[in-house]
Design a protein around this nucleic acid. Structure first.
Length: 511
RNA sequence: GGUCCGUUCGUCUAGGGGUUAGGACACGUCCCUUUCACGGAUGAAACACGGGUUCGAUUCCCGUACGGACUACCA
């Protein structure tokens, strides 16, 4: 195989969505697997849709995920510049080359003229209008107009585009690494615009020229590009670059959970899960939409989840670090069919990676959250609290919340449990327990358990009758982390206080 | 409408001419846990349909259905 050079080529027209992230990931994995280069090229040839901070967002997102570029606007590289808006002259030169060869032509039809033809054609029930060998002689272009007329129009500064002259009858074959041979007849192809009237190239031209110039070996991109891939093949042929044409791999699309259409940027809010890696402020609504990061997903979990959306290693192993993915990745094992996005699996991955984290990973962050709430006094054994809640949580946010609830004053007590479990036996047990605890300055979970059992034994009360109401008295709730550890961490003084408070707040009717 | 791509449990998928069609998520049950969760065990759950080819097809071929992408001077 020749030197592997792949590119991720996003256009900065908004936030990068999760399908784009997966495309970037697959490119990255493939590059690293074969010790090649991963290139980020910014395709900002659409001036109308340009969004100012979108480019930075792309870098930030990939950085968060640990996907590093070898060549890009930031890293630089031998094929600088890596931003298409800075390569205008290059495209112009190549467009001219095609024009000279007679493989492209000027077209003067205005948008309005074409739009009119399209709607007319649609209304009469015919197939969509195509600008191609069958129609171009009846349109206004350098093929149908006289040389003099063309020169005159250009001289006058009439806006024009450059179109590819697609041959009338030709079978175009392209080999896709994922789908095999794809055959398309040239008569079904449009004479695509190569240069727009604003002097900027369209995707098709810029993409092919840059891939060639940057010596891209493999084009790994979403399946939405498959229909225009034959046009790209034609472009390589027109330039005489067939021998250097990259290999194509068109990735299956990420679909909405319902399966009805590809996942789009709007879906996140509607379906209740993130579709962006990082938070993003929608420029129309000005709403800040949280990303996977803000929703509490760990980067390694997102990576692992995304890698398995359309690819698998062929073994039953499912947990892979980025390095392990590089090792295992291969294009042959990418699936053909669209993949519905199921957030449950992402949650599962997150839970798995969250449980594996060392508690110290969370403590600094938690201090920052607990401190302003007045819940952090430096004396709290935070790493023990983290351990207590970690294995029960899927997200970091659940952990802080649970710790917060445990440490702070109880707002509400579970009334139904009080109704069913709060009785004189329980009260006697709790009372004695709190009195004993009041004498102590600290107690371990083990000691607390022994102490409680001893008290209940002398009172002839079964632990089962008391334990849950003790939990309610200490936490307000009927379920939660290990009670005895909570007692150890909160300390006997605090526990004693909480029990007394509870007894006073909920007097028994016989009192 | 046209062109192209696709179709194995609800979801992600393994497999591949003869298999009890395997795993994971989610779901159910049980165990563990004096709670919840984790963990363990277990259950239910799939080859879109119709024709070929073949001794035999879920697997190969052809149709049909269904789904998707594209059909811009957007990428």
């Amino acid at each position: 195989m020749k030197d592997v050079r792949v590119r991720f080529a996003p256009s900065p027209t908004g936030s990068l969505h999760i399908g784009g992230v997966r495309t970037a990931l697959y490119n990255y994995l493939f590059a690293k697997k074969y010790h090649g280069k991963f290139i980020i090229r910014i395709e900002d040839t659409d001036q109308n849709r340009f969004v100012a901070n979108a480019e930075q967002y792309i870098y930030d997102s990939l950085e968060w995920l640990g996907i590093k570029a070898d060549e890009s606007v930031i890293e630089g590289g031998p094929y600088f510049p890596y931003k298409q808006s800075e390569r205008k002259d290059i495209y112009k030169k190549y467009a001219n080359e095609l024009l000279e060869k007679g493989l492209a032509y000027y077209a003067f039809d205005t948008n309005e003229e074409l739009e009119l033809i399209r709607t007319k054609q649609k209304e009469s029930g015919e197939n969509n209008f195509q600008y191609n060998a069958a129609t171009r002689m009846s349109l206004r272009n350098s093929l149908s107009l006289s040389k003099g007329e063309v020169n005159r129009l250009i001289q006058m500064g009439t806006p024009y585009v450059v179109r590819l002259k697609v041959p009338a009858k030709e079978e175009i074959r392209l080999f896709d690494l994922i789908r095999g041979w794809v055959m398309v007849h040239s008569s079904t192809l449009d004479d695509k615009v190569l240069m727009k009237s604003d002097g900027l190239p369209t995707y098709h031209l810029a993409n092919v020229v840059d891939d060639y110039l940057m010596k891209i070996s493999h084009v790994i991109r979403g399946e939405e590009w498959l229909p225009s891939a034959p046009t790209h093949v034609l472009l390589y042929k027109s330039f005489g670059w067939e021998a250097d044409m990259p290999q194509f791999a068109h990735l299956p699309l990420l679909l909405k959970p319902g399966g009805d259409g590809k996942l789009s940027k709007r879906d996140g809010e509607m379906l209740g899960f993130p579709v962006f890696p990082l938070q993003w402020r929608d420029k129309e609504t000005q709403k800040l939409i949280p990303g996977f990061k803000e929703e509490g997903y760990l980067p390694e979990a997102l990576i692992n989840f995304l890698a398995f959306l359309g690819w698998n290693p062929g073994t039953e192993e499912e947990i892979f670090s980025l390095d392990e993915l590089i090792e295992a990745f291969s294009i042959e094992r990418i699936g053909k069919s669209g993949t519905k996005f199921d957030i449950n699996k992402a949650k599962w991955f997150n839970q798995f990676y969250l449980h594996k984290k060392d508690p110290s990973y969370f403590t600094e962050e938690f201090k920052k959250i607990l401190d302003p709430a007045g819940l952090w006094n430096g004396g709290i054994k935070l790493n023990l609290w983290v351990k207590l809640v970690q294995e029960r949580s899927t997200f970091e946010s659940e952990m802080v919340l649970e710790i917060k609830n445990l440490i702070s004053k109880i707002e509400a007590f579970d009334q139904s449990l009080i109704d069913s479990k709060w009785n004189i036996d329980a009260k006697n047990g709790l009372k004695e327990f709190s009195e004993q605890l009041a004498l102590l300055n600290e107690i371990t979970a083990e000691e607390a358990k022994t102490l409680l059992n001893k008290i209940l034994e002398t009172q002839n009360t079964k632990p089962g009758k008391v334990l849950q109401i003790l939990r309610v008295s200490l936490t307000g709730k009927g379920a939660g982390p290990d009670l005895m550890t909570i007692i150890e961490l909160l300390g006997p003084q605090e526990i004693s206080k909480r029990i007394i408070h509870f007894i006073n707040r909920f007097p028994l009717s016989m009192d």
